[in-house]
Protein backbone atom coordinates (compact mmCIF):
# COMPACT_ATOMS: atom_id res chain seq x y z
CA UNK A 1 0.00 0.00 0.00
CA UNK A 2 1.43 3.36 -1.04
CA UNK A 3 1.41 6.19 1.49
CA UNK A 4 1.86 9.74 0.32
CA UNK A 5 0.71 13.15 1.48
CA UNK A 6 1.70 16.65 2.39
CA UNK A 7 0.49 19.44 4.59
CA UNK A 8 1.52 22.93 5.51
CA UNK A 9 1.91 23.73 9.19
CA UNK A 10 1.99 27.20 10.69
CA UNK A 11 5.28 26.86 12.51
CA UNK A 12 8.96 27.38 11.77
CA UNK A 13 10.82 24.35 10.50
CA UNK A 14 12.95 24.06 13.64
CA UNK A 15 9.85 23.85 15.83
CA UNK A 16 8.21 21.22 13.63
CA UNK A 17 11.41 19.20 13.67
CA UNK A 18 11.69 19.48 17.44
CA UNK A 19 8.12 18.32 17.91
CA UNK A 20 8.60 15.34 15.62
CA UNK A 21 11.61 14.28 17.66
CA UNK A 22 9.76 14.61 20.98
CA UNK A 23 8.35 11.28 22.08
CA UNK A 24 5.73 12.72 24.40
CA UNK A 25 4.34 15.00 21.73
CA UNK A 26 4.37 12.26 19.12
CA UNK A 27 2.46 9.91 21.40
CA UNK A 28 -0.16 12.63 21.73
CA UNK A 29 -0.58 13.48 18.08
CA UNK A 30 -0.23 10.11 16.33
CA UNK A 31 -3.74 8.67 16.04
CA UNK A 32 -4.32 5.52 18.04
CA UNK A 33 -0.98 5.53 19.85
CA UNK A 34 -1.44 4.87 23.53
CA UNK A 35 2.21 4.47 24.51
CA UNK A 36 5.52 5.43 22.97
CA UNK A 37 8.70 4.60 24.83
CA UNK A 38 12.26 5.30 23.91
CA UNK A 39 14.25 2.08 23.96
CA UNK A 40 17.48 3.30 22.44
CA UNK A 41 19.05 5.93 20.24
CA UNK A 42 16.31 6.67 17.67
CA UNK A 43 14.50 3.51 18.70
CA UNK A 44 11.07 3.39 20.22
CA UNK A 45 8.49 0.91 21.25
CA UNK A 46 4.90 1.73 20.43
CA UNK A 47 1.53 0.38 21.43
CA UNK A 48 -1.46 1.49 19.45
CA UNK A 49 -5.06 0.61 18.94
CA UNK A 50 -6.33 1.21 15.47
CA UNK A 51 -9.60 0.53 13.78
CA UNK A 52 -9.04 -0.02 10.09
CA UNK A 53 -12.42 -0.24 8.44
CA UNK A 54 -13.80 -3.65 9.19
CA UNK A 55 -10.88 -4.81 11.26
CA UNK A 56 -9.61 -3.34 14.46
CA UNK A 57 -6.74 -4.43 16.59
CA UNK A 58 -4.11 -3.68 19.14
CA UNK A 59 -0.71 -3.24 17.60
CA UNK A 60 2.67 -3.30 19.25
CA UNK A 61 6.16 -3.16 17.92
CA UNK A 62 9.12 -1.03 17.11
CA UNK A 63 9.63 2.36 15.58
CA UNK A 64 13.04 3.47 14.40
CA UNK A 65 14.31 6.66 12.83
CA UNK A 66 17.07 6.60 10.29
CA UNK A 67 18.76 8.75 7.64
CA UNK A 68 18.30 11.74 9.90
CA UNK A 69 19.33 15.06 8.38
CA UNK A 70 18.28 17.79 10.78
CA UNK A 71 16.00 19.66 10.20
CA UNK A 72 14.92 18.51 6.76
CA UNK A 73 14.45 14.79 6.49
CA UNK A 74 14.33 11.42 8.18
CA UNK A 75 12.99 7.96 7.49
CA UNK A 76 10.48 6.40 9.84
CA UNK A 77 10.57 2.61 9.96
CA UNK A 78 7.55 1.01 11.55
CA UNK A 79 7.15 -2.64 12.35
CA UNK A 80 3.88 -3.31 14.09
CA UNK A 81 2.47 -6.67 15.02
CA UNK A 82 -1.02 -7.67 15.98
CA UNK A 83 -3.29 -10.68 16.09
CA UNK A 84 -4.95 -9.50 12.91
CA UNK A 85 -1.70 -9.24 11.02
CA UNK A 86 1.44 -7.24 10.79
CA UNK A 87 2.32 -3.94 9.16
CA UNK A 88 5.80 -2.99 8.05
CA UNK A 89 6.26 0.45 6.69
CA UNK A 90 9.12 2.63 5.67
CA UNK A 91 8.17 6.29 5.30
CA UNK A 92 10.46 9.11 4.23
CA UNK A 93 9.50 12.40 5.78
CA UNK A 94 10.61 15.72 4.35
CA UNK A 95 10.32 19.16 5.86
CA UNK A 96 10.55 22.30 3.77
CA UNK A 97 10.57 25.82 5.17
CA UNK A 98 8.13 27.83 3.04
CA UNK A 99 8.93 30.95 5.01
CA UNK A 100 9.93 31.79 8.56
CA UNK A 101 6.54 30.80 9.95
CA UNK A 102 5.39 28.05 7.59
CA UNK A 103 6.68 24.57 7.02
CA UNK A 104 5.56 22.02 4.48
CA UNK A 105 5.71 18.47 5.70
CA UNK A 106 5.48 15.74 3.13
CA UNK A 107 5.87 12.00 3.28
CA UNK A 108 6.19 9.11 0.93
CA UNK A 109 6.42 5.45 1.66
CA UNK A 110 5.06 1.98 1.37
CA UNK A 111 3.37 -0.30 3.85
CA UNK A 112 3.47 -4.08 3.61
CA UNK A 113 0.54 -5.76 5.25
CA UNK A 114 0.10 -9.37 6.20
CA UNK A 115 -2.49 -11.69 7.68
CA UNK A 116 -6.12 -10.74 8.16
CA UNK A 117 -5.13 -7.12 7.70
CA UNK A 118 -4.03 -7.90 4.16
CA UNK A 119 -6.96 -10.03 3.12
CA UNK A 120 -9.92 -8.19 4.54
CA UNK A 121 -11.02 -4.88 3.23
CA UNK A 122 -7.76 -3.73 1.64
CA UNK A 123 -9.69 -1.61 -0.78
CA UNK A 124 -10.98 0.46 2.12
CA UNK A 125 -7.60 0.69 3.83
CA UNK A 126 -6.20 3.55 1.76
CA UNK A 127 -9.27 5.52 2.81
CA UNK A 128 -8.52 4.69 6.40
CA UNK A 129 -4.90 5.72 5.93
CA UNK A 130 -6.05 9.07 4.57
CA UNK A 131 -8.32 9.58 7.55
CA UNK A 132 -5.50 8.79 9.95
CA UNK A 133 -3.15 11.16 8.13
CA UNK A 134 -5.70 13.93 8.28
CA UNK A 135 -6.18 13.30 11.96
CA UNK A 136 -2.43 13.38 12.52
CA UNK A 137 -2.10 16.81 10.93
CA UNK A 138 -5.11 18.16 12.78
CA UNK A 139 -3.60 16.96 16.04
CA UNK A 140 -0.26 18.46 15.01
CA UNK A 141 -1.88 21.83 14.35
CA UNK A 142 -3.65 21.75 17.67
CA UNK A 143 -0.40 20.93 19.41
CA UNK A 144 1.36 23.83 17.68
CA UNK A 145 -1.44 26.16 18.68
CA UNK A 146 -1.41 25.07 22.30
Amino acid sequence: MQLTGSHTLAAPIEKVWQMLMDTDILAKIVPGVSRLEKTGENEFEAISEIKLGPVSGKFSGGLTLSDIVEPSTFTLNVSQNSKIGNADASIKINLLALDAQQTEISFEGEAKLSGLLARTGQRVLSGVANTLTKQFFTNFEEEIAS
Partner: peptide
Protein backbone atom coordinates in the same frame (compact mmCIF):
# COMPACT_ATOMS: atom_id res chain seq x y z
CA UNK B 1 -2.26 -12.52 -4.24
CA UNK B 2 0.22 -9.68 -3.87
CA UNK B 3 3.92 -10.30 -4.51
CA UNK B 4 4.46 -11.13 -0.85
CA UNK B 5 1.96 -13.99 -1.02
CA UNK B 6 -0.80 -12.18 0.80
CA UNK B 7 -4.30 -12.98 -0.45
CA UNK B 8 -5.65 -9.46 -0.65
CA UNK B 9 -9.28 -10.31 -1.29
CA UNK B 10 -9.76 -12.93 1.37
CA UNK B 11 -13.21 -12.08 2.65
CA UNK B 12 -16.76 -11.91 1.35
CA UNK B 13 -16.42 -8.13 1.28
CA UNK B 14 -13.50 -8.39 -1.10
Amino acid sequence: FDENGQLINGSYMD
